[in-house]
Design a protein around this nucleic acid. Sequence first.
DNA 1: GGGCAATCTTGTCAGTGTCAAGTTGTGGGG
DNA 2: CCCCACAACTTGACACTGACAAGATTGCCC
Lengths: 214, 214
Amino acid sequence: MRRTLLTMTPAPAQQPSPHQKPSARRPYHHGDLRRAVLTAALDVIAADGPSALSLRDLARRAGVSHAAPAHHFKDRTGLLTAIAAEGFGLLASTLNEAADLKDAGVRYVRFAREHPAHFQVMFTPELLRADDLELTTARALAGDALRGAVSAVRPESLGIDNRLAGVAAWSLAHGFATLLLSHNLDGPVGDKDPEEVFRTLAAMLFRSEPRENP
Amino acid sequence: MRRTLLTMTPAPAQQPSPHQKPSARRPYHHGDLRRAVLTAALDVIAADGPSALSLRDLARRAGVSHAAPAHHFKDRTGLLTAIAAEGFGLLASTLNEAADLKDAGVRYVRFAREHPAHFQVMFTPELLRADDLELTTARALAGDALRGAVSAVRPESLGIDNRLAGVAAWSLAHGFATLLLSHNLDGPVGDKDPEEVFRTLAAMLFRSEPRENP
DNA sequence: GGGCAATCTTGTCAGTGTCAAGTTGTGGGG
DNA sequence: CCCCACAACTTGACACTGACAAGATTGCCC
């Protein structure tokens, strides 16, 4: 828990704002503190997990006083909830562009690798304010996108209940992504491209009849 | 973060030990503090996640002084590492009794549901001391058990690389278990038995040729 | 230009992890 | 049987944290 405390000097570390008096040391208004805190938080979480996140540390990084972040996010839970909501929004938009179900799975895995902090927070409900409006709507959007990708595959042709096919696809992609992020597949996957490996797994799950019968 | 502080009275709350003087109020030696702290920690984590865990709170629950737990676990990370090691041990022993790969998957899901705190901690590496000996050996045991279940299925008959089959099975089971614990399958699964649902998913992944050709 | 609301600061409080140094009990060798 | 070394626990302290309240600063809109 102990941090170095060597960071006494405020150290602006961010371009203070678009239109500042050129000689102003540290402008009273940061300019875009909300975004600065968010991205700093994402850095910390990606590196050391959500438990390493400290509002005071984020404030120090942004060069503002210790209570400034709370004005934008209310409290720690609020910050994490904002991150999760943003994550679900990003996920929804990439899933909506998927060509088919396998592509959606690949995009799901890619999202987890490109936004590991978002991903981790999104699926840790005890860190979030469950009834937050932005969160619930963003999550619903992502859910719709997922269901859309599933329904496009016509799994009745495989004799499989549509609902279950969605759960299977989601489980496979989510499990692969999670194990990847927690470094549990470093051995098996090695230096191969994870997305390519996942494509093989997805083919195992949804393969059509062996030959004939289009 | 704020806790009630109504728990001022030490309140033994545990049978102090096997062989205590009958009139001793709070015996200096707890008797089995290590186990008491572990199970209290598992309760807290299962209810509110690892971030809600406080060594001082656990000490209060066990009726000992605030620094007592540290003597058994060194620090917070040590406690979580011990939990993870115990979890991998439990998982290994249940996987070793699996009849076949599908049964191993079912057991994996059952383990996650019966030991949600262990499961969550086991796959959150940033909370653990990665080089801990007990942890690494227990994890290796679980890995062996998993590989054993995979190799027993003879997936070459399906034309699939053995290694990949293992990753697929693990991903499916892990994803299903994770989504289950984070309440993301409450809708699709409903009040059905999750293990039964998972059996269906597993059948989708490893199904043999549609008919003839044993 | 004047006020007002958003933004940020300062100060404070209870709670936490961790370390160091002291107490208490217990089991094993003389 | 005793005593003593060591394990189990306590007490006290320090730096840190999230949260809240009250004040300071500033941009902006009428």
